[in-house]
Design a protein around this nucleic acid. Structure first.
Length: 217
DNA sequence: ACCCAGGTGGCCC
DNA sequence: GGGCCACATGGG
């Protein structure tokens, strides 16, 4: 059993299945992925509900809505001017490349699709991979800040580079979307429980795996 | 009055 | 290829 498989087992046994992404449709996943950038999910839920209440959570409406009106709906998620532009950029991309058809987007070659998503302004590595994994169900491992900090803490990775860490996961684990899905969600759950600082936390399922569990800086 | 949150892009060297 | 920085609201 590899270190990563062991960690996954510990997290799964402690926190249980996370059943991500919390959304009703793949389109909702994509918009949520942008809105949750550097923002707690609680605030994103409000914004998503605002959009749903006004029947704005679809490609056509978000294509037509003026930027300042969209900003109002998503204000609570922070960085709302940037995120509003990112959402508009994404729906423009969807319309131009796939006539607004998400299924069409997801049938494209996975590497090419990733490159295209990354070329959309406002969509970076994590957002692109979140869309690929949770909206298109393609095996890309999503790496977030929690994951990087924990890997470094556990001395399993000596880099901060996103692509290297993603490659580490993808080459160490079976290429299963359900595994990638749960694993990333479990890292986030670990982070939410404040297991990100040294020592990871009280009752953290990974504490005894830390190289220096009682080191005091 | 801090610090952090399921990041990203634009600079600079 | 890194190291800063602005971006913005809400909750502890």
């Amino acid at each position: 059993m590899t270190d990563l498989q062991k960690i996954y087992s510990r997290l799964f046994d402690s926190f249980g299945p996370q059943n991500w992404w919390p959304a009703d449709t793949p389109f909702e996943v994509m918009i949520g992925a942008i809105l949750t950038q550097q923002t707690s999910w609680k605030n994103v839920e409000v914004a998503i509900q605002n959009l749903k209440d006004k029947n704005l959570l679809n490609v056509e409406s978000l294509s037509d809505i003026p930027n300042d009106e969209l900003e109002k709906e998503i204000r609570k998620t922070g960085f709302y001017r940037q995120k509003s532009k990112a959402v508009k950029n994404l729906v423009s991309f969807l319309m131009e490349e796939y006539q607004g058809d998400l299924d069409k987007m997801c049938t494209e070659d996975r590497q090419e699709l990733r490159e295209k998503l990354l070329s959309v302004k406002g969509i970076g590595h994590e957002t692109a991979d979140s869309i690929l994994l949770y909206a298109c169900i393609k095996p890309f491992f999503v790496v977030d800040a929690y994951t990087r900090r924990a890997l470094k803490r556990l001395e399993l990775a000596d880099t901060d580079d996103y692509e290297q860490i993603r490659d580490f996961f993808e080459s160490s684990l079976p290429k299963e979307t359900t595994l990638y899905n749960e694993f990333h969600a479990l890292w986030v759950e670990l982070g939410k429980r404040h297991c990100k600082i040294k020592p990871l936390c009280d009752n953290c399922p990974l504490n005894d795996m830390c190289p220096h569990p009682s080191k005091t800086e």
